[in-house]
């Protein structure tokens, strides 16, 4: 079955005075129908830029540089997201493609009631007032919120409730794909777990596909089916949660897994150094400045994301056939 969303060679950057600084570099990613795919990486590695590029919501100075994105819906319709004019895109948004932005606690307009903010979209997508209201209430129930919350203003709700309202709004049109950026970052652990459970429930109930973006490996472990590990604007490794947690291939994934506080409370091993910013991405493998296994060619050549069998992919010279055969 073809992927729901097929991302190929997607690059996005920041427009400077003279040149563009690339933030996300030729990302290839297939989002499979019905899965929860986690995109994980350190702060600043370009996760949100990737998410907004997928939504085509980049705002200057952010610019899209190249690539293609194909959305294949169940009804057989196929859309080239990067080629769609803005008006068609608007039709697609929320109906098929919804987005929970980073910092979504501030994503509600403080001066409009929740009802207005949930139903205006539905009405604009062609629903009647009553139908829109019914859908909003149903969506609120999916995240365990009372319908009477519709009468509230955002400031009357707690952070967790606001976050739930956003999720409810995002699922109210039963979209095929939900892109959720740092959904749980600002929440306490208990609320975080509840929210993730609710999201997983929504996936099961609606058969939606969810792309969840986070810097928190714990979130990925709890909810995702597959993980894409991102480093400095590139995908370093891709595989199932099990594979990546049990036997990470890429040295960066190994470091990340090592950096998770274990049950005992002590960190097994941290990552030395700091993630590079887009203005000084290293040449060759971008991880070579921090990699414990660095070899000569790492400094000169960029490793490609290559299949490693069993649906695993890694972008590291150590796993290239000629290196493996030399070893």
């Amino acid at each position: 079955m073809p992927a729901l969303l097929e991302i190929r060679g997607l690059s996005a950057g920041l427009q400077g005075r003279r040149s563009i600084t690339q933030v996300v570099s030729s990302v290839d990613l297939d989002v499979q129908r019905g899965e929860i795919l986690g995109v994980v990486g350190e702060s600043g590695c370009g996760k949100s830029t990737l998410a907004t590029a997928i939504m085509r919501l980049l705002v200057p100075p952010q610019v899209l540089q190249s690539g293609s994105m194909t959305l294949r819906l169940k009804d057989g319709n196929t859309y080239e997201l990067l080629e769609l004019p803005e008006t068609d895109l608007r039709q697609l948004r929320w109906r098929h493609l919804s987005y929970i932005p980073q910092g979504s606690m501030n994503s509600l307009n403080p001066v409009l009631r929740i009802e207005r903010q949930m139903t205006d979209t539905l009405i604009q997508h062609g629903l009647s007032r009553e139908e829109a209201l019914k859908r909003s209430i149903a969506a609120l129930e999916m995240v365990n919120l009372e319908p009477r919350l519709l009468d509230s203003y955002p400031h009357e709700l707690s952070g967790g409730m606001r976050q739930r309202v956003i999720i409810a709004a995002a699922v109210s049109m039963r979209p095929a794909l939900i892109v959720a950026d740092e959904l749980t970052t600002a929440l306490d652990v208990v609320t975080q777990r509840q929210l993730l459970q609710e999201l997983a429930g929504i996936r099961d109930e609606l058969g939606a596909t969810i792309l969840i973006i986070t810097h928190d490996m714990g979130v990925v472990a709890q909810i995702a089916d597959r993980v894409a590990v991102m480093y400095a604007g590139k995908i370093a490794e891709l595989g199932t949660v099990n594979d990546i947690f049990e036997s990470p291939l890429h040295p960066y994934s190994q470091g990340l897994i090592g950096a998770i506080p274990r049950a005992g409370g002590h960190r097994v091993e941290g990552l030395p150094g700091e993630a590079p910013s887009p203005w000084n991405y290293p040449a060759g493998c971008r991880f070579h400045t921090r990699c414990p296994h660095v070899i000569d060619r790492c400094r000169a050549q960029t490793p490609a994301l290559l299949p490693q069998g069993d649906g695993r992919w890694a972008a590291c010279h150590l796993y290239e056939p000629e290196v493996l055969s030399n070893a």
Binding site: R90, Q91, W94, D120
Partner: peptide
Amino acid sequence: TFARAKGLS
């Protein structure tokens, strides 16, 4: 951003 993401005109 969210309003735009919602597909509002």
